[in-house]
Simulated scan of single mutants.
Amino acid sequence: MFLNAKKILLFLAGLLLLLSSCSIKQMALNSVANTLAPFPAPKADASGGIDAAAALTGEDDVPLIAAVFPTVLKTYEILHLSNPQHRGLAIMTGSFYVMYANVFVQTPADYIPDTQFQRKNIEYLRAKKFYLRGASYVMQSLDRAYPGFAAAINRYSEEGEGAKFLARCKPADTESLYWASCGVLGAFSLDPLDTDTLAVIPGALAMLERAAELDPAYNEGALWELLAAFYAAAPEALGGSPEKALEAYQKALDLSGGQRPSVYILYAQSFCIPAQDSAGFNEALSKALEIDPAEQPGNKLTITLSQEKARWLQASKEDYFLGD
Rank of each mutant, 00 (worst) to 15 (best):
Q307T: 10
E318W: 07
L10W: 05
Y97D: 02
Q116E: 05
R155E: 13
V103A: 11
P171H: 07
S95H: 06
L81Y: 07
L3H: 07
D114M: 05
V62F: 10
L226A: 11
K74P: 12
Y146T: 00
V98W: 11
F130N: 03
A284I: 08
E209Q: 12
Q296V: 05
K129E: 14
K129D: 12
P84K: 00
K244H: 09
I8G: 00
E290V: 15
G203R: 06
L285Q: 04
E290Y: 13
G239N: 00
A206R: 02
L246C: 15
G58E: 10
N30A: 15
E158D: 04
T115A: 03
T93L: 05
S82G: 13
K128C: 10
Q106V: 05
L226F: 11
G49A: 06
D45K: 09
L223T: 07
Q106C: 01
P235W: 03
A152H: 05
A163K: 02
E225A: 11
D254F: 07
R119Q: 15
K43C: 09
L132S: 03
P40H: 09
K6R: 13
N34P: 08
A101L: 06
K309V: 10
K309L: 15
G49N: 01
Y267S: 09
P63C: 02
S23E: 14
W224K: 01
A13Y: 03
P216M: 12
D215F: 07
L15P: 04
S286M: 14
F104N: 14
K251C: 07
A310C: 11
L214V: 06
P147V: 00
W312T: 09
Y111R: 08
P147G: 04
Q314R: 03
A44H: 13
K300M: 09
L322I: 14
A212C: 01
W224Y: 08
T57D: 06
I201R: 02
F39M: 08
I273K: 02
K129A: 13
H86G: 15
A232R: 13
A248D: 04
D215E: 11
L193H: 12
A294E: 10
N4Y: 13
E295P: 12
L73I: 04
A233T: 00
R119S: 14
P63N: 10
T75Y: 01
A54K: 09
